[in-house]
Amino acid sequence: MRKVSAISALVYMGLSTLAAGLFLAITLAGDYSWVARLGGSAWIFLLSNIVLMPVVIPAVKKRLGA
């Protein structure tokens, strides 16, 4: 069970960080304030986590046969 949690966290946190990073990268090309860039990235990270968690955890659980 602990293994499932760790692997799942790694996957959804990784993907969320990627999404937030991508957002930040796009905003760097535009004329945005740092509050918008960092705040936006944090919001993207949070929502991505929420969206990915219930998708990733059962998938990992299924794959590991837990």
Partner: peptide, 17 residues
């Protein structure tokens, strides 16, 4: 719930960009 969060994400990106 999942759909709503995905939608909120989409709405945020749309209004931001």
């Amino acid at each position: 719930i999942l759909g709503v969060h995905a939608l909120a994400l989409g709405v945020f990106l749309f209004w931001f960009f």
